[in-house]
Simulated assay, not measured.
Amino acid sequence: MTSKGHRRLLSIARPAEWSYRPAGLTYEIDLEDVQGFRWYYRMEGRYSIAIDQLSFARDFMLQSKVESLYTIVLYVTVSGDEFFPYRSLASDSITLYAPDTPFKVIYHHNMELYALTINICASFVENFLQERYPALAEAIQTAFARGPRHRFDLIRPLMYDILQCDKSAEVSALLFEARILEILSRITSAQETLAISDTAAERVTIKPEDVTALTEIAEYISDHYNRQILLKTLSSISLMSESKLKTLFKAQYGMTITEYIQKKRMSSAELLLISTDLPLAQISKIVGYANPSRFSELFRKYYGIAPSIYRAGK
């Protein structure tokens, strides 16, 4: 959540009579549309950390612009949509925001928002780069500008370390600083590696006729995602070899064919859970999984919680 987003929520919050963490401040939010708490910690001129645990009576929109801050958000649990560019928010995901980028998100009321947000001052990042990675100043800017496209799983354990820290104020301050510096190091190193792979990816040229074929494949999957789809079938439809199809599909859609099918199935399952009372076993079959346990496993992977719990919170 961006700096303005923080200020908007803090403007409707009041100091809590209890403390969520020994360090920082805890605020309670008890309004008709929003209830929960926010924990907030700030190091002036360096960074701020916030933990939000909120429930919404109806869909809730936050819209602002990141101001001279590098922002990292860990969504532990979330249901919603983000814009600029559009994507569906997923639980247990990490998103990066570069300075001066627009921020607009709608949180859905069917699931509690539990998120960790780190806002890092641009001047702090610049000093960090000058001291440790003087030759890679553009790498971290590129990494944040890529937004949700790359999730940088290497920083996930560090984010959870910050989220779960309940030490004294003095110990917390040391841990926060160390973890944030390590997060910046890992993002910079990861982006350097991605730059190498991107250079190779840029050499993949997709001809107009192949784009048309890939579009037909995507439409075929959308119509048949709940059935068994064989790679050789898609290869025949596209008039491409299986190897070429896999390479071009990932270059075009940013994910493998299997990931694309699973995403379609999970989106359909989410809609059925929210809008119907069908048993989970039946929903599992409808979206293409004969084994309900496998369906639940994949749903938990995508949304962070079991489908039964997701439905209960709708």
Rank of each mutant, 00 (worst) to 15 (best):
T188Y: 03
F103E: 07
M159H: 06
A90Y: 15
L298I: 06
R311I: 05
K104S: 11
I180D: 03
I140G: 03
G45T: 06
L69I: 12
E216I: 10
Y75W: 04
L230F: 12
K104L: 05
N226S: 00
S222G: 12
S11V: 13
V204F: 05
P208C: 04
Q53K: 10
Q228Y: 06
D210P: 04
L194H: 12
A57C: 12
N119C: 12
L248Q: 07
S19W: 08
E17S: 09
I106W: 02
F83L: 15
T205A: 07
L136E: 14
K285C: 03
Q191I: 13
F128H: 06
T95D: 03
L248V: 04
I221K: 00
T212C: 08
R7V: 13
R179N: 12
A201I: 13
P279Y: 04
C121I: 09
G80W: 00
R300I: 11
T26D: 04
A178W: 04
I180Q: 05
L54I: 03
G147A: 11
L116Q: 03
Y47P: 03
T77P: 13
T2R: 04
L113P: 07
T101N: 03
Y225I: 01
Q282I: 15
K207L: 14
R87K: 08
L278G: 03
F299D: 00
L163E: 07
S123L: 03
E32T: 04
I29L: 01
L62S: 02
M266T: 01
A137H: 06
F124W: 07
K65H: 11
E219R: 12
G45P: 01
R149V: 13
A13D: 05
T199E: 08
A135F: 11
A23V: 09
A169Y: 10
L113H: 05
L184I: 00
L214V: 02
E44S: 08
D166E: 12
A201R: 15
F37A: 11
M255S: 13
E82C: 14
Y160I: 11
D33V: 08
Y289P: 00
K263A: 04
S88K: 07
E17P: 10
L298R: 07
F249G: 03
V73G: 09
C165W: 14
V76E: 12
R14T: 14
E28D: 10
A195L: 10
A312F: 15
T256D: 05
R294T: 15
S238W: 01
N119Q: 13
G45R: 10
K314L: 11
Y97R: 08
Y253D: 09
S241C: 09
F295D: 00
N291D: 14
F295C: 00
S241P: 02
T188L: 04
L69Q: 14
I155E: 03
L31F: 02
R203L: 14
I305M: 09
E177L: 13
V287A: 00
R8I: 14
R294A: 07
V105H: 01
Y75C: 03
